[in-house]
Amino acid sequence: MKGEEFGDFLKGQAEIWQLLFAFTGSMALKCAVQLRIADIINSHLGPLTLSQIASHIADSPSPDSISYLTRIMRPLVHKKVFTAHRSSDGGETLYGLTHTSRWLLWDSKPNFVPLILLENNPLMLAPWQYLSHGVKDGGRPFDKAHGCDLWRFASENPEFNEMFNDGMGCMVDIFTEEVLAGYKDGFGCIGSLVNVGGGIGGDMYKIVKSHPHIKGVNFDLPHVIATAPTYPGVSHVGGDMFVTIPNADAIFLKSVLHDWSHDLCVEILKNCRKAIPENTGKVIIVDIVFDADDEDDIFKEARIILDMVMMAHTNGGKERTEFEWKKLLEEAGFPRYKITRISAIPSIIEAYPI
């Protein structure tokens, strides 16, 4: 084997090692969140040694604490989640925050804490073991792992339902401010708005708070609405979007349609169309518009990963290209649409019935 060929051969081996154990990065991230390492460092307004971090994790740290922490922090430093450098006196290594670890702060919003705990929970990891089964004999990985789809599983398991709602709720803080900034003129002419699949109502409340003239309705399954807090200006309504949707000037769908297959999305959108005025109504969709050819997109890898998440966890859901969105909207009775890009993973798609 020639030198250049051998170099490529070794590079391929190294890349397989990284892919083979890629899950260790996610587990280290979950561990850091559970131990609140970022919060400990942040509360002291500067880098800390592992001994100092350990002393804030437990009153009497185990003899293994420093050894474990050293090895857990190593991949997180390598991925630039934390910084590491020797103290000025040449003593212990000091660990500090980066722009990445600031997304791990429990006491600061927005953060990814609930989503990290949700997606790395054994219940959500189990479906990943069934991807090959889906290729060979069809079916959905989540159903194969748990005997039912995610929505039924959540309705029958209150503890999981709470964890799932918390995980989805953190995306309100991550995405909704960008939606409000990027679509501020779009909400101005809306008198009433129904947030379909709105969870416990965080999105609807932020929209109504920013645009008090809007009569806001948060619409979701009854077991979700049952845990929703009271928000000023927001009415909670339980129901099934596959049956009927409350009437309004406009419908808001954030991170909902990517959970469902093409045919089921058409059903949802047809019900949305029935719920809005023929001449002035619109549906506002906040979801990923996938563009595999955009090499400069900082969220490209995240969007690819999220498409895999949809495959593992949802009822035929996926992240869609603009062509797929166009086809979907046309079949549902929306011949006209407009896409607005924002500084976040999703985009805003306005769909019009005429």
Rank of each mutant, 00 (worst) to 15 (best):
I200P: 00
D220P: 01
G3P: 05
T98R: 04
A32M: 05
F9R: 09
T280C: 03
R273K: 11
P110H: 11
T98L: 04
A38R: 01
G7Q: 14
S235H: 08
D137E: 15
S55N: 07
G239M: 10
L76K: 02
D39L: 04
D64F: 13
S51W: 07
I268K: 01
I348Y: 03
D293Q: 14
L35P: 03
L20P: 02
V135L: 14
T100V: 15
G191T: 12
I174G: 04
G167E: 00
P110C: 08
N111P: 03
P335L: 10
C272L: 02
A250C: 05
S87I: 05
A248M: 06
S26T: 11
L29S: 01
A351L: 09
S43C: 10
S60G: 10
L48C: 11
H211V: 05
D263R: 04
D249W: 06
W260Y: 07
L329W: 00
S343I: 15
I339M: 07
D64N: 12
F153L: 13
F23C: 15
G12Y: 13
S26L: 10
S343T: 14
L123C: 06
P232N: 02
I16H: 11
P61F: 08
H146I: 04
F23N: 15
L69T: 04
Y205K: 01
E119M: 12
R341E: 14
E319V: 14
V81W: 06
D149N: 14
R320T: 06
D259L: 03
A58H: 09
D137L: 14
N120I: 08
S65N: 09
F23I: 15
A275I: 02
L328V: 13
P222F: 10
K209R: 10
H258W: 07
P232V: 07
V243P: 02
V256M: 04
L48I: 10
G12R: 09
D185I: 12
E267K: 11
K215N: 09
G216M: 02
N157C: 05
S51G: 13
H236C: 05
A145E: 01
V256L: 10
V256Y: 00
N111S: 13
F175R: 01
Q13F: 15
K109L: 15
A351S: 10
Y68I: 15
K254R: 13
F160S: 05
A302H: 12
H213F: 15
R74C: 11
L97C: 03
H44P: 05
K215W: 11
L131V: 15
E322A: 15
I53C: 04
I207Q: 00
A226C: 07
N121S: 14
I268L: 05
D296V: 15
Y95G: 01
L257N: 03
G139N: 03
H85C: 11
L253W: 00
